[in-house]
Nucleic acid binder design. Structure first.
Lengths: 208, 208, 208, 208
DNA sequence: ACCCACGGGACATCCCGTTATT
DNA sequence: AATAACGGGATGTCCCGTGGGT
């Protein structure tokens, strides 16, 4: 019936749990394309097949649903990228693979609508503290992951001694997010390609 | 009466023109913080002091007003930055000044709410073509300006022969936008500072 | 068109003022029969002929409208009773006339639904402070009026020296309100008649 | 577990019976403060600890529950007052005790929210016939009790021959209800005290 | 050129009640 | 006997936009 029916087979989930999961999963794309305010509960209803009563049983408010949808979306992104750095590869290889995959995502992003951090962040940074904190935490989570890789590279003497892991990680993230934004705006993946290439070159430089 | 009263003295403007200008100028901050959908005409009314009729006389719709407000905001940004590159400085100096000012804008942006290109772009890229085209044009305008500077630097043999002006311009813009986004999200200007510093180093590299 | 059109002729009222008056006047009966929570804005719409936009232009909320409707209703009651005590009659005559009219109102109350103080009071005393304060003020206003009459009677030596005006006024009001309540519940005016008769006797007693 | 657990020990009640009792007992205070329409099933759920299904198993509708809750509340009132007139005292003593207790109830009513007859009556007299009939019956029950006492007093020659039991009973009830209403509105027990004192005097008068 | 007044659709949320499940 | 899950209508309020009037 639902695209998420397989859950029931895999893990032992209660009926309500499945519904909740289904609602969240269906909402992700809507929120990530139309935005938080731009998405109405009617949109969610249309997408999920549930009625108001069925949705509000699982979420206290639109904000709550949006929060869980964001978490879900960020998780999907993590999973989509994890294959690139959750490996036994050398740190520089991890970063290289990460950037190659990022280029691939320019054409088909793991979450419809592009990067949820970018999308939600710009919308809520001045208006909604709960959601902003969530996005912030996600951004920090990503940053921490990246910092870790750069640190490994440094301790393994693959990267220069002078290299600053936090600086590099933040720089990589900023450039990447900006690239995603401009690629979406222009509907041209080349912005992403260009930025990825520059970052790839930079990684080589860090090894000298 | 209005903060924009000086317009009337400076140029010979009709009463309606002044009002229109006033409405646009007052709307910029609202749209740039609350977003296009997040801003209601009531917000505009509260900010401008005009009544609905007085606003709709000058703008056919909320969309039209938002469009003009965006143009106005982008123009303010241009003016705020123009002093850095509309000079007789050498290209590398222009870029350096540009990045130094960008760092300053981390603390106090020329337009309240941050970069209007970033804000509006992420909101409308999937939902509103009219506004998206406008943002796109603005981004292109900025890119063209930057490309021009890099080209100058190349023809003046200040930058390496191998340097690709379009690539560098786009890269600079992407990094900058990403930095603005993350600085706003974390409410920490250091993200902008870090990125600016890396870009400043890169400009030095381009000269070798 | 409206039952309140005559207002425009009598006093120079702005269009909006008339509409507001009309909405209030139409709402009174609805609120006073269905109650505050029991009345929906749709009921108001149905009764007034206005649409949501037209109503919310004049009232910030249902609560606000209810407040003004109550004031209007109380005022109508005052007017309906004023002929009995705003006279040059002797105090005891005033009270007598008041009670006679109260008996008449058992059959046809000046405000549809009965006494607005009674109705609103029992509904909001535990739930809505704004409205409760309003009803309280109205009850106090009425009490003050009655106390005044008893005081007159005392200073004019019509009533006994031992008579306590506040006590008598409050007693009269309590009995009256209770009588209205039970008459409405049983749909039998005799409860009101009985109480009025006892009170009339009591007034005679006070003169001895 | 529940405050009503003792029921199970005292009488042999089925599990369902206990639950029903518990739901009713818990609902009384809610209905009597928020009113019938003002009370939502969610309020009941919160108060009882039961889920919706668990409640609707015992009551066909919110109206049914409200009806039983009213009966329960009225019964509590009866019990609370019964000690004053279900005695071997003389009729005038019964009435005196009744009024003294009524004064005490001004400070702490036997049912939270005040007199259920007053509260429900004013809410439903124009809108809900089922509940209105219920309240009516309760009011009549109380009246019958009072009439009986006055009759006793008359046949025992304690009260004047000219005294009309029905008139006195109704008068006492009306005054009392009105006093409760105004005391609640003003949050001042003195209204009740005043009325009770007048009624006590009246009882003395009836004996002459 | 601008305000006042109004229409009517949309929105997030609440509400009562039913059905599936255990 | 009671919960969990869901349907779908109703509610108060907001919102964009349109005319009449001055």
């Amino acid at each position: 019936m639902f695209a998420t029916d397989w859950f029931q087979n895999r893990i032992n989930m209660a009926k309500g749990e499945i519904s909740k999961e289904h609602i969240i999963a269906s909402s992700v794309a809507v929120f990530n394309t139309k935005g938080y305010v731009g998405t109405s509960m009617s949109d969610i209803i249309a997408k999920t097949g549930f009625q108001k009563g069925g949705i509000y049983r699982h979420f206290a408010s639109k904000e709550q649903l949006a929060a869980e949808a964001f978490q879900y979306a960020y998780n999907q992104m993590k999973i989509a990228y994890s294959g690139t750095y959750d490996t036994t590869d050398a740190p520089d290889v991890k970063l290289t693979k990460f950037l190659i995959r990022m280029k691939a995502f320019m054409l088909k992003p793991p979450v419809k609508g592009g990067c949820p951090i970018l999308n939600l962040s710009t919308e809520v940074d001045d208006t909604n503290d709960l959601l902003r904190e969530l996005v912030k935490a996600a951004a920090l989570d990503w940053e921490t992951k990246m910092v870790q890789i750069y640190k490994e590279g440094k301790s393994q003497k693959i990267f220069k001694k002078s290299m600053d892991p936090v600086k590099e990680a933040r720089y990589l993230i900023c450039s990447t997010e900006g690239a995603i934004m401009l690629s979406k705006l222009h509907r041209d993946p080349n912005f992403g390609f260009t930025v990825a290439d520059v970052l790839l070159e930079r990684i080589k430089e860090l090894k000298k």
